[in-house]
Measured scan of single mutants.
Amino acid sequence: VTLFVASYDYEARTEDDLSFHKGEKFQILNSSEGDWWEARSLTTGETGYIPSNYVAPV
């Protein structure tokens, strides 16, 4: 399981994006799509795309 933590807050801009807060942890589901990764929030359980430059490895 690949875990990352949010370095910043992010507000979703499309329905496919995932909003999150600094400190929130994610399981990365797919990182092969470039700068936007499909992730599941371990806080909310929601799945969506997050900007990879807003998160760091745990």
Rank of each mutant, 00 (worst) to 15 (best):
V1M: 13
V1Y: 14
V1L: 13
V1W: 13
V1P: 11
V1A: 12
T2A: 10
T2K: 11
T2I: 13
T2P: 11
T2E: 11
L3G: 03
L3D: 05
L3P: 04
L3A: 06
L3Q: 07
L3Y: 13
F4N: 01
F4T: 03
F4K: 02
F4H: 05
F4V: 10
F4D: 00
F4I: 03
F4M: 09
F4L: 04
V5G: 03
V5D: 01
A6I: 03
A6N: 00
A6S: 05
A6Y: 03
A6M: 01
A6E: 01
A6D: 00
A6C: 06
S7I: 15
S7V: 15
S7Q: 15
S7P: 04
S7N: 14
S7H: 13
S7E: 14
S7M: 15
S7R: 14
S7G: 08
Y8I: 09
Y8N: 08
Y8W: 12
Y8F: 12
D9V: 03
D9L: 03
D9A: 08
D9C: 12
D9H: 06
D9R: 04
D9E: 06
D9K: 04
D9Q: 05
D9G: 06
D9P: 07
Y10F: 09
Y10S: 01
Y10R: 04
E11F: 10
E11P: 04
E11Y: 10
E11G: 05
E11S: 10
E11A: 10
E11W: 09
A12Q: 06
A12W: 03
A12F: 02
A12I: 01
R13H: 09
R13F: 08
R13K: 12
R13E: 10
R13P: 07
T14P: 02
T14S: 14
T14M: 11
T14Q: 11
T14D: 11
T14L: 09
T14K: 13
T14G: 15
T14E: 08
E15W: 09
E15H: 11
E15S: 13
E15R: 11
E15G: 13
D16P: 04
D16L: 14
D16Q: 14
D16T: 14
D16M: 14
D16K: 15
D17H: 15
D17T: 15
D17R: 15
D17C: 15
L18W: 04
L18C: 04
L18I: 10
L18T: 02
L18N: 01
L18S: 00
S19L: 02
S19P: 05
S19H: 07
F20M: 09
F20V: 04
F20E: 00
F20Y: 02
F20T: 03
F20Q: 00
F20R: 00
F20H: 00
F20N: 00
F20C: 00
H21R: 14
H21G: 07
H21A: 11
H21T: 12
H21E: 08
H21W: 08
H21S: 13
K22D: 02
K22N: 04
G23H: 04
G23C: 06
G23F: 05
G23K: 02
G23E: 03
G23I: 01
G23P: 01
G23T: 02
G23R: 01
E24T: 08
E24P: 00
E24A: 05
E24C: 06
E24D: 14
K25T: 12
K25G: 05
K25Q: 12
K25W: 13
K25L: 15
K25H: 11
K25R: 11
K25A: 08
F26W: 02
F26Q: 00
F26P: 00
F26A: 00
Q27K: 07
Q27F: 13
Q27A: 09
Q27T: 09
Q27L: 14
Q27V: 15
Q27W: 14
I28K: 03
I28A: 02
I28E: 01
I28F: 03
I28W: 02
I28Y: 02
I28N: 01
L29E: 04
L29D: 03
L29I: 11
L29V: 07
L29F: 07
N30P: 04
N30H: 07
N30K: 09
N30L: 06
N30S: 10
N30Q: 08
N30I: 07
N30Y: 07
N30V: 07
S31D: 13
S31Q: 13
S31Y: 13
S31E: 08
S31V: 10
S31I: 11
S32P: 10
S32M: 12
S32Y: 09
S32E: 10
S32G: 10
S32L: 11
S32I: 10
S32F: 09
S32A: 11
E33Q: 14
E33H: 14
E33W: 10
E33V: 10
E33A: 13
E33I: 11
E33M: 14
E33N: 15
E33L: 14
G34E: 12
G34H: 11
G34F: 09
G34N: 11
D35Y: 14
D35V: 10
D35M: 11
W36Q: 06
W36F: 10
W36L: 07
W36P: 04
W36I: 07
W36D: 02
W36G: 02
W36V: 07
W37V: 05
W37R: 00
W37F: 07
W37I: 05
W37K: 01
W37S: 01
E38S: 07
E38M: 15
E38V: 15
A39M: 05
A39L: 02
A39R: 00
A39T: 01
A39G: 05
A39H: 01
A39D: 01
R40A: 04
R40Q: 08
R40G: 00
R40E: 05
R40D: 00
R40W: 07
R40V: 10
R40M: 12
S41R: 12
S41I: 06
S41Q: 05
S41L: 07
S41P: 01
S41H: 06
L42Q: 06
L42S: 04
L42D: 04
L42E: 07
L42Y: 06
L42C: 14
L42N: 03
T43W: 11
T43L: 13
T43A: 10
T43E: 14
T43H: 10
T43N: 08
T43Y: 09
T43I: 08
T44Y: 02
T44N: 06
T44H: 04
T44Q: 02
T44I: 01
T44D: 03
G45R: 04
G45E: 04
G45T: 03
G45Q: 06
G45A: 04
G45S: 05
G45I: 01
G45V: 02
E46P: 01
E46F: 11
E46D: 09
E46V: 09
T47E: 08
T47S: 09
T47K: 09
T47I: 14
T47F: 07
T47W: 08
T47L: 07
T47G: 03
T47M: 09
T47N: 05
G48P: 00
G48W: 04
G48L: 04
G48D: 01
G48M: 03
G48C: 04
G48S: 02
G48Q: 01
G48Y: 04
Y49K: 13
Y49D: 02
Y49F: 12
Y49A: 05
Y49C: 13
Y49N: 08
Y49E: 02
Y49H: 07
I50C: 03
I50A: 01
I50H: 00
I50P: 01
I50W: 01
P51M: 06
P51N: 09
P51D: 05
P51T: 01
S52R: 12
S52Y: 08
S52L: 05
S52T: 06
S52D: 02
S52Q: 07
S52H: 07
N53Y: 11
N53C: 15
N53K: 13
N53D: 09
N53I: 10
Y54Q: 06
Y54L: 13
Y54P: 03
Y54E: 02
V55S: 03
V55T: 04
V55A: 05
V55H: 03
V55C: 05
V55I: 10
V55W: 03
A56R: 14
A56K: 14
A56E: 14
A56W: 10
A56F: 13
A56L: 13
A56C: 14
P57W: 06
P57K: 08
P57F: 07
P57E: 08
P57R: 07
P57V: 08
P57D: 04
V58P: 05
V58T: 07
V58I: 13
V58E: 10
V58F: 12
